[in-house]
């Protein structure tokens, strides 16, 4: 296993532990924005987002009744979705730098070689 891959796996493991296990112990008090809005008097203008009905809304999986499991699962799903989307984006962009990085025709072959 390459050093890069080992580092990525350890980092992903830490992220999954934080989102999947430790997140249950996060503070559930209103965050700075919400508490400031409450104090200054504009919290009531907040509206439900169009995504409020999502089955992952508010960091829980709808239908999973165990609170710890629900939060943890939502965190793990979130980490994996973000990982996949961000990696796809950055992998797509890599090696497509403006002109100085090789001609476009060769970029597809170089991107297929995994590190």
């Amino acid at each position: 296993m390459s050093r890069n891959r080992l580092f990525l796996l350890i980092g992903l493991g830490v992220a999954l532990l934080i989102a999947g296990v430790a997140s249950y112990f996060a503070s559930s008090s209103p965050d700075g924005m919400e508490s400031a809005a409450q104090d200054v008097g504009f919290l009531d203008s907040a509206q439900d987002s169009a995504a409020a009905g999502s089955s992952l809304a508010d960091y829980g999986v709808s239908g999973v009744n165990n609170e710890w499991l629900s939060v943890g699962l939502s965190g793990i799903i979130g980490v994996l979705v973000v990982l996949i989307l961000a990696t796809l984006l950055t992998t797509f962009l890599k090696g497509r730098g403006p002109s100085e990085n090789a001609e476009p025709g060769t970029s597809s072959s170089s991107s297929s070689t995994g590190a």
Partner: peptide, 25 residues
């Protein structure tokens, strides 16, 4: 971005998502 930083960036995004779940008082 290059071969090394592209996967690193994916990890950084995932890690930030995870740590953003950890509200501290």
């Amino acid at each position: 971005l290059d071969e090394k930083t592209a996967p690193m960036a994916g990890l950084v995004a995932a890690f930030i998502f995870a740590v953003q779940m950890m509200n501290f008082p």
